[in-house]
Structures are given as structure tokens and as C-alpha cells.
Simulated scan of single mutants.
Amino acid sequence: MPDIETEAPVIFRGMLRDVVACSDFDDVCRLLELVPAGPDVDEIEHYQSHARIEEFMPVAVEALTHADVAADVLYRLTRLGEHEEGPDERAQAMFLFVTRTACTAVIAHLLQKGTLEIGEES
């Protein structure tokens, strides 16, 4: 089990890199009041993010299909007892975005770390 207290800031920056467009990363860091990385660290973090996402790609379709189902489950659970007419398309889109993003980032990080491995298809 990882020491989350010491690894959390590194994991946070890595996940932020994975979910924010490269061109927006510096601006988002400023908005979140994060200390910017130096140029060498920034380049390494940027490369590692692309490597993580590339490693995720072989399972992306299946993982994102499951994320879509999870989004639907969570959306429906949050609306239990509500009697509104029709779905809230904005809320559904937000659940979809959040679950897809979280799924991608978590799986990509676990693959990079070696906690998960992509197996052979059966």
C-alpha cells in the first residue's frame, strides 16, 4: 500500500497533467496556486503524462465503456426520489466527463506504477 501522505502531491500533479490540456496546464496550476515546476521537472512530468496515456490506450475503449456505465449509475443514484420531467443533460454530461477522466487517470497511473498490467485477451 502506498504512503498516500508522501505520494499524494506527486500523484495530484501527475493526474492534473493527465486531465488538463498541455496548453492549459500552466494556467490551471496558477489558478490552483500550485508552485510551478522548474523547466527540467516540467519537461519530465509532461513526457510522463503522455507515456501514461499512451500505455492506457490499449484498454481505453473497454475502460471508458465501463466509465460510461458508472456515470449513468451515479447520475441515477443522485436523482433518486426526484420527480423531474426528463433527464438533466448537463448533469449527465458532467458525470460522464468526471467518470471518464477519473477512470483514465487512475488506470494510467496504476499501469505506469506496475500495480496493473494489461493481460492477454482471452
Score class of each variant (00 low, 15 high):
Ala70Phe: 14
Cys22Tyr: 02
Ala8Trp: 14
Asp27Lys: 13
Cys103Trp: 06
Pro39Met: 02
Asp24Pro: 08
Leu80Glu: 13
Leu74Tyr: 12
Leu111Cys: 11
Leu116Gly: 00
Asp68Gln: 15
Val106Thr: 10
Ala67Met: 07
Gly38Arg: 03
Ala60Met: 11
Glu54Thr: 14
Pro87Glu: 15
Ala37Ile: 00
Thr65Gly: 15
Pro87Asn: 14
Val69Phe: 10
Arg17Ser: 01
Glu84Asp: 15
Gln92Ile: 02
Arg30Leu: 07
Val41Ile: 06
Glu5Ser: 14
Val28Tyr: 04
Glu43Ile: 05
Asp42Glu: 13
Ala102Lys: 05
Ala71Lys: 08
Thr104Lys: 10
Val73Ala: 11
Gly114Ser: 00
Val59Met: 01
Arg30Trp: 01
Ala70Pro: 09
Arg76Phe: 13
Ile11Pro: 10
Tyr47Asn: 12
Ile107Pro: 05
Phe25Asn: 07
Glu84Pro: 00
Asp3Asn: 15
Leu116Ile: 04
Phe95Thr: 04
Asp24Ala: 12
Leu96Arg: 11
Glu89Gly: 03
Phe12Glu: 10
Ser23Ile: 09
Tyr75Trp: 09
Pro87Gly: 14
Arg30Lys: 12
Gln48Trp: 08
His66Trp: 12
Arg76Tyr: 14
Glu33Thr: 12
Thr78Gly: 06
Ala67Val: 09
Phe25Met: 12
Asp42Thr: 11
Leu16Ser: 05
Ala67Ile: 09
His66Leu: 15
Glu43Val: 04
Val59Trp: 00
Val28Ala: 08
Leu34Lys: 03
Met1Leu: 14
Phe97Val: 03
Gly119Phe: 02
Thr78Gln: 07
Arg17Gly: 01
Glu82Ser: 12
Leu80Ile: 14
Glu82Tyr: 08
Ala71Gln: 11
Gln92Val: 09
Cys29Pro: 01
Ala60Trp: 00
His46Glu: 12
Gly86Lys: 11
Ala67Arg: 08
Ala108Leu: 04
Tyr75Asn: 08
Ile4Ser: 03
Ser49His: 11
Thr78Arg: 12
Ile118Val: 04
Asp27Ala: 09
Phe97Asp: 10
His83Tyr: 11
Glu121Asn: 05
Ala108Asp: 04
Ile118Gly: 01
Arg17Gln: 04
Thr104Glu: 02
Leu16Gly: 03
Ala105Phe: 05
Leu64Ile: 05
Val106Leu: 11
Glu89Ile: 02
Ala105Asp: 02
Cys29Asp: 06
Tyr75Pro: 03
Thr101Cys: 05
Glu55Ile: 10
Asp42Trp: 06
Glu5Ile: 14
Leu116Lys: 01
Asp18Gly: 14
Leu16Ile: 00
Gly81Asp: 04
Asp27Thr: 10
Val35His: 03
Cys103Glu: 11
Ala71Met: 07
Ala105Trp: 05
Val73Phe: 13
Thr65Arg: 15
Glu85Tyr: 04
His109Glu: 15
His50Pro: 00
Phe12Leu: 12
Leu80Phe: 10
Thr78Asp: 06
Val98Cys: 10
Ala93Arg: 02
